[in-house]
Amino acid sequence: MASTQLAHLLSGLLSDNRIRTASGKPYIPPPAEPSTQSEKNGEIHSLGGSIDQLLSSPSRSLLNSAFNSHQEVNLCFGISALDKFFSGGLSFGTLLEMGIPFGNGGRRLLAQFMATATSGLSGGQKHWCLWISARQQLRAYPPAWQALGVDLRRLRFASSASPVSELKAAFLDDFFRVIIIDQPDPLKPDEYVFLAQCARQHRKIIVVARDGFLSPRDSNTAARYRLNVWRPPRKNILEITPVRGLHRSLKLSSFFQHPDTRIAT
């Protein structure tokens, strides 16, 4: 019984691993498409999606050559449904704000994003990344990050309750291309403006992950996208609901599949 439970539990993880089968090859993001009928019907996308199909598509070599050139490409999550959701990944120069209640598995999406950024799976270029956390007593567990595909040599962790003032130099420099601020409380409005400006000027992707849900009433206009990521009670899915910048919701199968609830397919 226990092994069956574990198999269910890890089903999301295994689908996640499909990205690793293409180790050494750049991950090619799915092209931006209008939402399909199945998505409109609320079908749930498996993490990893159709990466293998995409890698074997005839257009791959063409895309690869485009990536190998020095032009800036979007950075993908490595989860095809999510990359489609963002019209082919996140472009450099973006400030993204996410409301992710801490502890429900939503930050795994951000760790996945770090994996594609540091390992060069997206676009073939390896980027330096910075994860800033304001949490006391709780620290990152690097082996789990590495197991997701993160290249730990290109990732730095910092602990700061005032990230904008204490790590200003990191935002004002081109070195770290992806910066994630894991902050329980919201930042000040002028800090969001500063971050958006840094992202634009220094061609970075900055993500602010907050514990509480975002609301349109917050009126944070500095962020290009604002999303809520949450796990509905007793459901094995992660639901991504846009607050700003996008117009449709997305449901992903959660990496954690509780055996007492319906298994997401």
């Binding site: 567990y141 082996p143 730990l152 040599r153 730095r156 602990s159 700061s160 200003k168 420099d173 070195f175």
Partner: peptide, 28 residues
């Protein structure tokens, strides 16, 4: 470049490496 940034910020930037230890808290 990394040295320069580390010299400019107020808090340390920490990178991690793996160890051979099997205990979760000692595996890095």
């Amino acid at each position: 470049e990394l040295l320069r940034i580390e010299n400019s910020v107020a808090v340390p930037l920490i990178g991690y490496a793996m160890t051979d230890h099997w205990c979760p808290e000692k595996s890095f």
